[in-house]
Amino acid sequence: MIEEESRLKKPIFVVGCMRSGTTMLSKLLGDHPNIIHCGFELKDIWSTEGNVPMSSPKTCDKSCPSLDETDIKPGQLEKLTTAFYKRMEFVSKKKKKSKNGIFLNKNPHFCNKLPFLNALFPDARFIWIYRDLPSVVASMKKLFDDNSHYWPKKHNDNTTRCWIYHPEKHPPEDIDKDRFFPEGDVKYLAEYWYENNKAVSDFLINSYQNPFLIIKEEELIANPKKIISQCYQFLDVPKYVPKKLIKKIDSNRNSLWNTRLTTEELQSLYKFVLDQGKNLDHIIPEKALFTEYKSQITNALSK
């Protein structure tokens, strides 16, 4: 067992599906003198040192499985903790931060691994950032133009899927072309948004195991100082305003989604929203997402 004094103390994990603002939020938070953001997702450490598969262009993993506390392997925590501390030391020296800074890691691949992550780091704190479904779908479509990904079929109702990276630009013959991007059916991008945000919601809201904060990406864009202040208050760190990074935020970031989707894609997305119906309302408490997204897509189709 790893010694208690060697554990990461109250690590911060930023969670949310791809293209939801996890990178932006982590950079803003990581600008704080007391927080050490060790770089983009740390998939190299999770995959290589920790043997936690995360399929992406930067790893050789061919899967991104849903994991829980039963999947922890002997020595896994020790290897991960050692690697994280080493990376923290490097970053703290480079950015002249306190050695006692708080570890922060963001990674969309956490969405289907939260019970596993919580079992490794039981005193972890979570910040969940979500972005409206249509914006995420359009942004992922654009992202996948340069990185081919496959959305696997569901074989177990109790697990949450994640994307499988494919180095090939075109789908192999044995793969459903509608599930392969670029040029796949956008309903599968929406399915990813729904399934992964639902997994986060089910774990954080229903388990009550860890302190967590929910952030809406659109609200972060509209009022970054207010939202960042809420985050620092939640994390119990001194007030701080990352002024330079706030100035770089693109205020128009969410205004282009409907121009990136064809009429056929908007119709496919609309059908997905109708099929899910009130299920969408259960993801974020007190938010009528079904009505909101139906209205957004209807307005886009009418233009």
Rank of each mutant, 00 (worst) to 15 (best):
K79Q: 14
S55T: 05
S98N: 14
P167V: 09
T81A: 08
N112W: 06
A124K: 04
S98P: 01
N100G: 15
D44P: 00
P171K: 05
F116D: 06
P33W: 06
K198G: 00
K93D: 12
K113R: 15
L28T: 07
H155M: 05
L245A: 10
E89Y: 13
P167L: 01
S139C: 08
V186H: 06
S229Y: 06
N279P: 01
P57M: 02
N147G: 01
S207T: 12
F181P: 07
W151M: 08
T22Q: 03
P53K: 11
T48P: 00
R161E: 14
K278R: 11
L220S: 13
V136Q: 02
R161A: 12
N158L: 13
L133W: 02
P115A: 06
R131P: 02
L80Y: 07
L120S: 05
T59P: 10
W163S: 12
A300K: 03
E69V: 01
N254V: 08
C60T: 13
L80G: 07
T259Y: 09
L143Y: 10
K169W: 00
Y240V: 05
L77N: 03
K142V: 15
Y270C: 03
Y188F: 15
L114P: 04
N51A: 13
F103I: 04
P285N: 07
K303P: 00
S135P: 01
L42H: 03
D132Q: 09
K94Y: 11
S229A: 14
K198Q: 14
P53Y: 10
S6H: 08
S26L: 01
A300Y: 01
L25T: 06
L213G: 05
Y130N: 11
S251M: 06
D132E: 15
W151Y: 15
S135H: 02
G277H: 07
N279T: 04
K278M: 06
V14L: 05
H155S: 13
N258I: 01
D174V: 06
N118Y: 15
D44E: 09
K58S: 15
L256W: 05
P167Q: 10
N34Y: 09
K142Q: 15
L143S: 04
L289D: 11
N299V: 08
T298Y: 09
L274G: 00
L269G: 07
Y293T: 04
D185I: 02
E264A: 14
K287N: 13
L289H: 08
K244R: 13
K10P: 01
K226Y: 12
D61M: 05
K154E: 14
F126K: 02
G50N: 03
I175T: 09
R125A: 07
Y232Q: 09
L256H: 13
S63D: 12
L280F: 02
P122E: 08
Y293Q: 08
A190T: 07
P171Q: 03
P211T: 11
R260L: 14
E41Y: 06
F203Y: 15
C231S: 14
Y85W: 15
V52I: 14
S63I: 13
I45M: 08
